[in-house]
């Protein structure tokens, strides 16, 4: 582990972009000393001035000096210093967590929420597609919160075959609720297409990237998170989706309380 003049104060002074630079450098520590500033800027999609600002905040005159220090630190192969490493990790973790949530929160417009409430306020049956794995935990969460806030007619679908069967025969007066952490899971895409063909409205929560499911949805919530997997076992953070569900339900309850008091 290379330390590079990092202490708590320095790290706290870094902006979210600069932290992302730092993170990239740590993830690719052996490659960076051989990169030019333009190559690095291209790889991380930040401007060269962000990189220079980052180097200056770490106490270097510019990128070249930073690279030099990096190279000599790597050669020293100094022992990991647990403490500052932990500070760095937790700071990077919480900052990127917060950045994702903040960005996700900005995508939650009043129009999206109100379009959703129109459906929630009706008696229209809501079908929740539970594809298994981590995403099913989200569906269960949504289901419980819907029931707890007094919404009836919520039906969970647990298998692909059942889902195809049900959606094929759904009337237009129903809603299909879809959550996809990747936006690219084939059975979920197929289901969204099927609903679309039958003109069944779809409410979805999908990544901010261009994805088929969002395009097929009547109401499309988006979230920010990096896609991640461990040799095929996917563990993309679901927190932004939890947060989206939480905000939908919080606003929904608020609206119900307001109506009740009118």
């Amino acid at each position: 582990m290379v330390i590079l003049n990092l202490d708590d104060t320095t790290i706290k002074n870094l902006s979210a972009n600069e932290l992302a630079v730092l993170r990239f450098i740590y993830d690719n520590i052996l490659e960076v000393p051989d990169m030019s500033i333009h190559e690095l800027a291209q790889r991380i999609s930040y401007s060269t001035s962000t990189i220079i600002r980052f180097c200056k905040k770490l106490g270097f005159s510019g990128f070249s000096e930073f690279k030099y220090a990096l190279r000599s630190e790597i050669q020293k192969t100094s022992l990991p210093e647990e403490f500052s490493r932990n500070i760095l990790n937790s700071k990077i973790i919480t900052d990127s967590l917060y950045t994702d949530i903040e960005a996700t929160s900005h995508l939650l417009s009043e129009d999206l929420l109100n379009a959703t409430f129109q459906y929630l306020n009706s008696d229209t049956p809501i079908y929740l597609w539970s594809p298994g794995g981590l995403t099913s935990v989200l569906i269960d969460y949504l289901e419980m919160l819907l029931f707890a806030s007094g919404r009836q007619n919520v039906y969970k679908i647990l298998t692909t075959k059942t889902a195809n069967h049900i959606v094929r025969s759904l009337s237009q007066d129903s809603i299909l609720f879809i959550i996809s952490a990747t936006g690219s899971y084939a059975p979920t895409i197929k289901l969204a297409k099927l609903a679309n063909m039958n003109q069944v409205p779809v409410i979805s929560i999908t990544p901010y990237t261009n994805n088929t499911i969002a395009g097929l949805s009547t109401v499309s919530f988006r979230f920010f998170a990096n896609q991640r997997e461990n040799n095929g076992a996917e563990y993309t953070s679901r927190l932004p989706i939890f947060y989206t569900i939480y905000m939908i339900m919080k606003n929904y309850l608020k609206m119900k309380e307001l109506r009740g008091s009118q």
Partner: peptide
């Protein structure tokens, strides 16, 4: 609270 305020407050 308007939903905008609610978003800010929740954040």
């Amino acid at each position: 609270l308007s939903s905008d305020d609610l978003l800010k407050q929740s954040l």
